[in-house]
Simulated scan of single mutants.
Amino acid sequence: MSDKKGPVAVSIDIGFGRVSITKSIGSEIDIVTFTSHAYPVDLSKYNKLSGRVLHQKDNVIVDVDGISYEVGPHLDAFMSDYESRTTTEDYVDSPRYKALFLAALSMQPEDTIDFLVGGLPVNNMKKESRLIDFMTGEHKVNGRVITVRNAIVVAQPLGILYHHAFNEAKQENILPSQWLKGKRILTLDAGYSTFDWLFTIGMLPDENRSDAKPLGAYRIYSDVATALQSPAIFDGAVHVDLVDEALKNGSFKLFGESYDFPTNRIRKPFFDIQPRIAHVAHEALAAVKSQIRDGGGIDLILLGGGPIDNYQEAVRESYPKNKIEKVVNADDAVCRGLALIASQVAKSAAINSK
């Protein structure tokens, strides 16, 4: 949230894998993040078990079309067989997306938001106007009415680009627009569902060299889970969220047993799933290179998004002569950049209103 004396400008990034929202914009950006799980709950039974009370801190209950959903940072990914995450282009129209949005909005301390900036995958920007219509206006949540006066939606990789430009410009004591001027930058954003790329000259995107494919982390998790399910390894169903946790922690847990990950050579069953990860990463970069074959015209390649480490080697193999940088705070770089865009829009609006 910006200075209370001025307009309130914030950002929300609702991804397939997690949700990030800024609560303040200043010298330090305050970000709240939680996984994109939204579970339908029966309020007549909710809170009757003490264990449920103990786990509900910071979670919220929101209503979407008459159905109550629990959303928040303290949800167990395995608490239900219900498919809580959607990975299709219809995501922004789904009840789950709306539940995640309302939950994130409820975490804002202010009841009136002057400028809200959100993001979409590059290949889903055709739904920009629909999402703006949904975000704008009054929203009833948790006994509050929160009003969003103005909403803006941009391609998610643009948030990564502006986040990086802001940090670089700050070091050189210039404006982000000055730092970006004339630079030809390829921004790669590894998300949960999609792998996005955005080619820009300055801040101007080139739509003919920008796109997204369903080659994000979910594809990696799914392929790895399939491999682990084989009779030669665990011979049974493996949940993709177990793979997600294993890649973050370096340890795969199943039925209470732990195994080294992504390569396990200590005890049976032995496995090495690194080739599976590499295969998806190279497939993603092949899609990028189908549009941008030659890296000679690229000044800088930026890497962002939580799962981006799984793709770095493939990026460097695909563009061996290019300068490649992983942005700071890569996990939530999109939301940070969107927050900075919101702040800039608010400042411009304030100046124009004088």
Rank of each mutant, 00 (worst) to 15 (best):
S230H: 15
F199E: 03
P262T: 07
G256I: 11
F255A: 15
R267Y: 15
A278N: 08
L285P: 03
G202V: 14
N208V: 02
G250K: 05
R209Q: 15
A227I: 00
D223G: 00
A212Y: 07
V240P: 01
P269R: 12
R265P: 01
I266Q: 12
A227P: 01
E207I: 12
R219G: 00
A281T: 04
L228D: 00
L254V: 00
L285C: 03
L285V: 01
R209T: 13
I266H: 12
V224C: 12
D196I: 08
S230C: 02
P205A: 13
W197T: 02
I220E: 04
Y259T: 02
D235W: 15
S210T: 01
F195W: 10
D206E: 08
N208R: 13
E245H: 12
G236V: 11
P262W: 08
V240D: 09
F255H: 11
A217R: 01
S222P: 00
N264W: 10
D260V: 03
T200C: 13
A246H: 10
L198Y: 10
R267K: 15
F255W: 07
V243Y: 10
F252M: 12
V238W: 09
F252R: 08
T263E: 06
T263M: 10
L204Q: 15
E257K: 13
N249K: 14
F261P: 01
A278M: 07
N208M: 02
H279S: 14
F270K: 14
K213W: 12
S222N: 08
R209L: 15
L215H: 07
G256W: 09
F252L: 08
I201S: 08
R219L: 08
P231R: 13
L215R: 01
I266T: 15
A212K: 06
A217W: 01
Y259A: 11
H239Q: 13
T226W: 01
E207C: 11
S258D: 12
N249M: 10
Q229A: 14
L285G: 01
P262K: 11
Y259K: 09
S210L: 03
A227C: 06
N264I: 04
W197V: 00
S230L: 00
A232F: 13
I233S: 09
N249I: 06
R276F: 07
A278Q: 11
P231M: 11
F271N: 04
L254W: 05
I266F: 13
S210R: 05
A284S: 11
V240C: 07
H279F: 14
D223E: 11
R276E: 08
V243W: 07
F195A: 04
R209H: 15
A246N: 01
D260L: 12
F255Y: 09
G256T: 07
P214N: 00
A281Q: 06
G236R: 14
D235M: 08
R219M: 01
K248P: 02
L247W: 09
P269W: 11
A278I: 02
R276A: 01
A232G: 02
D244F: 13
D196W: 12
D223N: 03
L254Q: 08
S251M: 09
R219F: 03
F195V: 03
I201E: 04
F199V: 09
L247H: 05
D260P: 09
F199I: 00
G236N: 12
R209S: 14
